[in-house]
Computed example of a mutant assay.
Amino acid sequence: MRWGTGLMIAGVAALAWGEWLNRRWSRALVGDGEGTREVVVVLGFRNPQATANLVNRWRVRAGLCSIDPGRVHDTRVIFTGGATGEAATEARVMADYAKSALGFAGNVLLEEESATTWENITNVIPLLEDADRIKIVSQPAHALKARAYLRRQRPDLAGRLVRVDDYRLGEWTIAKPLLALYGLWTLRGLTPDERKVSR
């Protein structure tokens, strides 16, 4: 009985830790943002098949949910990611899913050359120059890494970063401890200042 209780407590603690850490990452390196010109950047995930995989479908939905309802007509959505294998680029696969499956008819741009997160940011920078509000969408740890990269490459643009809809309490709960562990590994190169939660 004690073992069962201990395992249950450990399981609940792991789930709570995963929720807390993902929520924290979602709120790091973002501000309030001013102005009306909004750009939502959706980062691609390895997608060797012709249709969007589970992760890319989630990222597209999170990206579209991140569009401010009052700024729909002023918002550009940039899908970024190159080809993995013989299939279409990650960017094109996500854009196709947004249009065909979700009925999105807004302003879409594609960045189809990137192979890494650093390249994602480097290649979309010219498309962000006139934005008042910049939103980068992925799983919370990956999005934080991308925001840190934008801060390193263009601190002036990083000041325009705002929060996105990439964290919801209870969504992916079972997977969040694993996502948190993986996130800690992928974020090991960030400085403490780059992990700071925005007020």
Rank of each mutant, 00 (worst) to 15 (best):
45 F>H: 09
149 Y>S: 09
165 D>R: 10
173 T>D: 01
123 N>R: 07
87 A>C: 10
79 F>V: 12
82 G>M: 07
64 L>D: 05
8 M>R: 14
3 W>I: 14
37 R>W: 13
100 S>T: 13
56 N>S: 04
188 R>K: 10
112 E>T: 12
79 F>W: 13
74 D>C: 09
175 A>M: 09
184 L>Q: 14
29 L>T: 08
149 Y>T: 11
18 G>T: 13
111 E>W: 05
14 A>K: 01
19 E>W: 03
122 T>L: 12
17 W>V: 09
69 P>A: 12
149 Y>N: 04
107 N>S: 11
157 L>A: 12
5 T>W: 00
63 G>L: 08
89 T>P: 07
1 M>T: 00
174 I>G: 00
53 N>W: 08
68 D>H: 01
175 A>E: 08
162 V>W: 02
156 D>A: 09
61 R>C: 00
182 Y>E: 14
190 L>M: 13
137 V>P: 06
76 R>M: 14
178 L>G: 12
178 L>H: 04
145 K>A: 11
63 G>P: 10
19 E>L: 03
50 A>Q: 15
135 K>Y: 09
197 V>R: 07
27 R>N: 11
151 R>G: 15
87 A>N: 13
85 G>H: 00
83 A>Q: 08
184 L>I: 08
65 C>I: 03
33 G>V: 02
139 Q>F: 06
32 D>Q: 15
19 E>D: 03
61 R>D: 04
155 P>V: 13
105 A>I: 03
76 R>G: 15
81 G>D: 13
146 A>E: 03
109 L>Q: 15
120 N>F: 10
150 L>H: 10
74 D>S: 14
134 I>Q: 00
